[in-house]
Structure formats: C-alpha cells, structure tokens
Design a protein around this nucleic acid. Structure first.
Lengths: 338, 338
DNA sequence: GGCCTCTACTGAACCGTTACCGTCGCGGAC
DNA sequence: GTCCGCGACGGTAACGGTTCAGTAGAGGCC
C-alpha cells in the first residue's frame, strides 16, 4: 500500500473511499503506527504551526510580572484563535547562548521587551521568518512593531503630578542595565540604559517636570534590579531616607509603586495626604489599592502582536502599531500639604 | 563543498580547521544562508528540543488563575534549565479538534488538569512520547503523575473548620463539568464531575464533615463555571441568600473565597466573627487578606513535572509524585458565634 | 467499439538535515 | 620503503512525510 494513500487517509478523508480509509486506520492501529510525524510534516509543508516568543529574561521572572502575564495571555489568545502553538524559547539569562533561537521550529517570532543589544534579538532577525517586536523601537527594516508611547504616557502623568502642585519629586525605576545595580541612577546612567521602556518613561517624566522648570539633574532616581514589591519597599526606603522632603514618588511600574505604598504605610506616612505615589501599567491590584497610574492595554498588546504576525496576508511593508494608554487618577495622588 | 562540512561548521567546530570553518560561514553569510533549518534538524536527530503543554481550557483562562500561572512558571523554569522550549498547545475549548496535538513537534507532553474524558488527553497518549499528567489520577500505564492529595488536604481543612465548632457549613466550588452550570450541585452531580481535583476536594470535605456526624446530602454546594472573584461573589450571594444560617463557607479555591469575602464585606457580615471563610491553593493574595487556606506548592509542581519529563534517564517504570500541602490557618476562620 | 472523463489509487521526487563510514594526504616508526 | 595512525573532509543514505504527475479501471456518450 502506497504512502500517499496513508497520508490521504489521515489528512484528506474525501480523497479515498471510506472503507479503504477505515482499513488503513485499522492496520495502522494494529501495527502501532502513531500517525503522521509532526516534524516530518513540518519539514515538507514548511509550516511549523507555532510562534516563538522571546521574553525579557529568565522565563520565571516574567511570570511574576502581571503586565507580562497579561501580554502572554493576549498573545496566547491570538495564537489559539489561529490554531497556532506558542513556543516559549528558553533564553539563558546571562549567557550568550543563542542556540535555542536557532533550534526553535517556528513560523515567526515575537520579541517582548528585550534589552536593545541583546544577541538573541540579533539571532531572531537572522532567521528567515517574520518577526514582531514589542515595546522596543526597531531601526531594523522588515519588522513589525507594537507598543505604547511610553514617553507621552509618562509625560501625561508628570503633568498631572505637577498640576497638583508637586515640586519635590522622587523617582523609582526598574532595572536600567542587564547588570545588577541597586541604588541612585545618574542621568547618564539613565541615558545609557539598555531598556527602551525605562528610558522613555524617564525622559517623558523629565520633559513633564521641565515644563514647570524643574531641573532633572536634581531629581533623585532610585533604581532596582528586581521587579518585586519588596524591591519597591526598599527603593522607597532609600529614596525617602535620603530625601525626606519629597512630596511625591513617581514609580515606573505598579509593582514598585505597591512597594512604595507599603513602605509609606509602615512609616505612618499617609497617602495621599502626606505623600503622593504613582505607578505605571494599570495592573488589577492597582485599582484595588487606589493607585494613580497609567493604564496600558497589555492583553491587547499581546493579541495585536499575535495578529500582526499571523494575519499578514501578502503585506510586505512593516507596520508600527502604537496602542493607546490612559491616565488613571485615583486616590494615591493629591496636592501636597501646604 | 560538501554538505557535511557545512553542517560541521555550524555544529561541530572542532571537527574542521578554523580557517575552513571561517570560510564556510562567510560564504553562507554572503549567499544568504540562514543556518541549518531547525525542523530538518529535528527530523534527522529525532529531537524537537521542546516540551508540549496542554492546559485545562482556553489558554487565556489559565493566565488569570494564579495557581496555573505558578505552575507554568515552575514548568518554564525546569525547561529553561534543560535548554528546552515550552510549547503551549492550542486546545480549542469546546471543539474536539485534536489536530493541534498531532501537529505539535515536541519530545514530550505535560498535561495540566484536564477533564478526565478529554479527547486531547487521549490524543497525547497516542503519541509515542513520554507524558506527565498533573492533578489527575492516571489509570494509564507508562505515564508519570505529579500532584497533591486534594482529598487529604481538604480533609485537614474540614477538620479545622469542624474543630472550631462549625456545623452549618456551605460550600462554593469550581466548575464540575465542561458544560456551563451555575447553581447548586447535587451529590450525584458532584460525583459525576469531570474534574478530578474538584471531586477529590469535595469528597475530602465530605469525609471531614462525616467525622462529626454531618450529613453531606444536607450541605449546600454552589457551583460556578467561571473561576473569577466575581463568580465567588455571586456564589456567596446565592449560598448565603438561600441558607442564612450558615456559619462557615468553604471554597475549593482562593479566587472564589476572595469573592466570598468581598460579598461578606458588602453585606456587612464580619469575617471571622460572623462568618468563617476558607479557600484552597495559597495564592499570594490570600496571605494579604488573611484567608485561611491550604497552601499547595504550585511552582514546585510545575518544576517537578518538567524534571520528571526531562530527566528520565533510562527509567522505565512510571512514577507518581505527591507533593505536600500545608494548612494555613489565618484570620478568616474562627469559632462560630454562640 | 473508440474516445473521453472521472474516481481511486500509486510512484517518485523532494523537504534540509545529520549519522555513518570512507577516503585522502601526511608524518612518523620500524 | 612500507605500514600505520590520525586529522580533515566528502559521499551517501536515511529521517518520515507531502505533493504532483501520473495510471488503471469503470462507466458514459456518440
């Protein structure tokens, strides 16, 4: 019996008589044939049926960040709709081991918020498959980009804080380099950050403060490598400890802001009466605690990234999608005490 | 130049002289050869370099469940350590479309908490690759199993509640069938549940209540299809509305318990003075709100599942691992008012 | 009966690698 | 001078499918 007939029995039931098909399947069952091999099929059809995802860091890290999980959810949703798998590519955190990218049998890649100069990104671009980059500007041609306008969003938040009357403002931000650094970050360190998202948020903030004449060089910025509530606590401690007169703490993520709130609570500092605290992302928890923040559509971002990758008809020109953000003014921000 | 040499240039630098290798790579670059094709390589080496994961339902659903996210994190961690990818297999929620399982190019599968009779599970077992099943007993030979003892864990919780003196107890549980059903669930409906986890927790509870002479047939059990805080709220509303005399509400998940707490708060019912509420899972949020619950090591579960799949030396006999759980007594449980 | 069409099935060519083994040239030992 | 060993590289055959271009036979039509 010919191989073609077997193939048809599995893939094109209408191409052969039901009884022959039945006979083929029974025989296969009897002989312990497990059905067509997916890899061989992929080789021949030149379709892997899956999308590769490169996450920032150690995978485990991403799963603790609600924004990343939301993104993942949206992306998974898009893949599911298209019947495509989603392959989490193992990115060794420190190593330059790009082999995993080369070994990924996928029809396209989504790169989520990687440091600018990451070798993995380079490896992805070498691969002859379409790619969508998230939260990262791409000078590279032929690559779709989806993200938000971090600069403008943070500018809006800065204006809100300034309009309330705050002039003594401190900042807590996420990691700026791949190397661990916990402490105050100078303007040149900020400018040299590997992470586009953090850079943009800081420059947005800077622009906002400049509008009311504040000198960015005098604004204390505390950086934390870990992105956890605990890191937010310790950052707030360092910030308020070194600058007791601050009336507002602007954080570049909700997680860090939650930590700042927690620290204020322990200190007996009332929010917002004594201190204004703001975040960024709009995670679920932020609403519950009344955190003023910028909501960004993380789930939508993932979904759009997936669709951009999968729905490309014969589209050739790369697209750049900027999703809207929304300033969420809640109860953690108020005018400073006179 | 022979193909073998090219292959060696990429994969076995020690097998050829540096200058030849250099020449090969340069020529490849110049000719636009993107490096060895991962799919063809997989076909030849019979290794896909990835593990497939089947999640309960629509992927998107899982990402909202902290327990599932924790599991995913642990599994991703294990895969990352082994340099393996993690493929999220798109499981169409309602459809019996098993094709995605057949098309997944993976070296093994992890099946996470699927309904007993799910056709996808059957399709996985047909595939000639090792499989690890989670939170599900497996009569099937040749399959590793990892999970917790839901029955015993819930029995422990039940004893705690009974020892406090509660006798008028209501229950809120997650979905028992794939078909949507929101409302009270009779004992036979419980017994007919497709979800082993829910079944075990309920029988554990039943056993615990039986020890103090309570008739399970008289214990109201409210089922909710959606696993959200909002569903917990509405379930608590139905439960307390129909049975005003209850002194304790036992929930089979923390998420639902959070909803019950919320509903109690809105009602002005004090916890634990007027009402005891318990959960299950031990998610982060449960600690913050002081929820009495059973902590299960979700991350560890994922990690162990991955290791079981990847580390199997020449082990043949299937293994069953039962991870420990821990009763967490917090401030949401107390003796009933006299 | 010859021609044509249609259905049901088959043969052979690829898809892009890697594993296995053979060959070739060279230097050193006897 | 011959033989052996070794390092470096090349040839060939799978790996397990799908696809495309057939072919055999049945049946309809003139």
């Amino acid at each position: 019996m010919s191989r073609t007939t077997i193939s048809n029995a599995y893939n094109r039931p209408d191409q052969l008589s039901p009884q022959l098909r039945q006979r083929v399947l029974e025989t296969a069952q009897r002989m312990g044939y497990p059905g067509p091999d997916p890899v061989a099929r992929s080789l021949r059809t030149r379709k892997a049926g899956a999308v590769g995802l490169l996450l920032t860091e150690a995978l485990s890290y991403a799963f603790r960040d609600p924004a990343a999980v939301g993104f993942l959810e949206g992306l998974a949703l898009a893949c599911e709709d298209a019947g495509q798998g989603l392959l989490l590519v193992p990115v060794s955190p420190e190593r330059t081991d790009v082999a995993a990218v080369h070994r990924a049998g996928v029809d396209g890649f989504v790169v989520y918020s990687m440091p600018d100069d990451d070798p993995h990104l380079g490896a992805v671009l070498q691969r002859p498959v379409p790619t969508v980059v998230c939260d990262q500007p791409s000078r590279i041609d032929d690559v779709d980009v989806v993200g938000i306008d971090d600069h403008a969003a943070m500018l809006g938040l800065a204006r809100h804080v300034c309009r309330l009357g705050h002039r003594r403002i401190g900042v807590i931000c996420m990691r700026l380099t791949k190397q661990r650094h916990d402490g105050f970050a100078s303007p040149q360190r900020q400018a040299g950050s590997h992470y586009h998202v953090q850079r943009s948020r800081l420059t947005g903030l800077q622009a906002g403060l400049a509008e009311v004449g504040l000198d960015w060089g005098r604004v204390p910025v505390v950086e934390r490598f870990d992105h956890t509530v605990a890191a937010g606590v310790s950052a707030a401690e360092a910030l308020l400890g070194g600058h007791p007169g601050l009336t507002a703490v602007v954080c570049t993520s909700d997680i860090l802001a939650l930590g700042a709130l927690q620290h204020a609570g322990r200190l007996g500092v009332r929010v917002p009466e004594d201190l204004t605290v703001t975040g960024f992302d709009g995670i679920t928890e932020s609403e519950r605690v009344g955190l003023t923040t910028v909501r960004q559509p993380v789930r939508e971002k993932g979904r759009v990234a997936g669709q951009l990758l999968l729905d490309r008809g014969e589209r050739v020109c790369p697209r750049t999608l900027t999703l809207p953000t929304e300033l969420q003014v809640r109860s953690s921000s108020a005018p400073p005490r006179v």
